[in-house]
Design a binder for these strands. Structure first.
Lengths: 186, 186
DNA sequence: GTTGCCATGTAAATGGTTACATGATTGG
DNA sequence: CCAATCATGTAACCATTTACATGGCAAC
């Protein structure tokens, strides 16, 4: 039996189960709350994926009804734990995928009038600020079970701080060079 | 006729054509060389997408053979220019999607032994360094037709510098706490 | 004469997103 | 009693990725 290829969604799910999140709903919530800053993946497909993992023998499912409503609790099997571990320990070169639409627009920003350029960069700055607020809040609240979880949250806060400041400095330098004199087209 | 919905690939292609890249091959090369730091998308589907854009009347194609081999040169039509502009000017809230596998692994790093944790973070650091080298090289070479294109490259360099330093500081703090005494398993 | 680059394309697979659908429990 | 939250699932869509396939040209 080969080491069982995991999909990205599968990896996140295994990790979350290892961390103690036991239901599909709980995993989904935790992913949306906490990994979205370095790992964007809406796992709408969480339930089908849980079933696939079960079929592959990587997780086991127990019925755990809450009152009259069904609920399933998941646990890692030995194979699941092994698969998670071997993914984590893979010494493959690291990569990052980023889709930063604002930055892509900025690249083509010479097609925009100055004030719309400023608007674009302001919106980028605001996004970083929004994210920063949320991350700082999480860090202030504390309650991190795991120091590495906390560390990745700190990374998110640090990165968004840097990026917000970058946007700000770009805005400042634009102001210096071209005062926003709004003149009608010639 | 509605404003013609664009796919992500479509937007990048329109932008690249506006910048003066005229063949599918040239666009593909430029995307791979330069946008990958803030916009990861392998446009294997570039030729089908070019055809879709042509069918939608957003680009026009001219035969432009090189010797005996076919080649097509693309230009924006008025509608294409309008579609590009209206995308760029959209005042929608900005978002970022990131898939940073190393960071995801780091979150679950409590399942790893200390030396593998260090290996993971080192690989993350190396990746940022690799990217930084390439971006610095591009900046040194100069030859930026467009200041905004240059700016986004500077963003890439700045971000990777920050991230590399972050990895380094994490590595340092790990060394302090737990000296890497390599002892055989008990 | 063969390697590497320029250049264009097709086909299949698939992972992920979105929308839809259902229903119980809890608290105000 | 209504809204929010907990909870699970299906179906369709589609954009992107990967692999495959072809061929001219230039340089070494």
């Amino acid at each position: 039996m080969q080491p069982a290829e995991l999909t990205n969604t599968g990896r996140v799910i295994l990790g979350m189960i290892a961390e103690g999140h036991r239901t599909g709903y709980a995993i989904k919530g935790e992913v949306e709350r906490s990994t979205r800053f370095y790992w964007t993946a809406s796992i709408g497909g969480i339930y089908p994926e849980l079933r696939r993992l079960q079929d592959a023998g990587l997780v086991s499912r127990t019925d755990d009804p809450r009152g009259g409503s069904r609920r399933h609790a998941y646990e890692l099997t030995d194979r699941g734990r092994a698969a998670l571990q071997s993914w984590l320990a893979e010494p493959r070169e690291c990569e990052i995928e980023t889709r930063y639409e604002g930055m892509l627009k900025l690249r083509f920003a010479s097609l925009l009038p100055q004030h719309e350029r400023r608007g674009l960069i302001s919106r980028m700055k605001e996004m970083h600020e929004r994210r920063l607020r949320r991350l700082r809040q999480r860090l202030d609240e504390g309650g991190f079970d795991d120091p590495w979880h906390r560390l990745t949250t700190e990374y998110g806060a640090g990165w968004n701080t840097w990026a917000r400041d970058w946007c700000e400095s770009v805005l400042r330098s634009m102001q210096d060079e071209q005062p926003a004199t709004r003149q009608p087209a010639a």
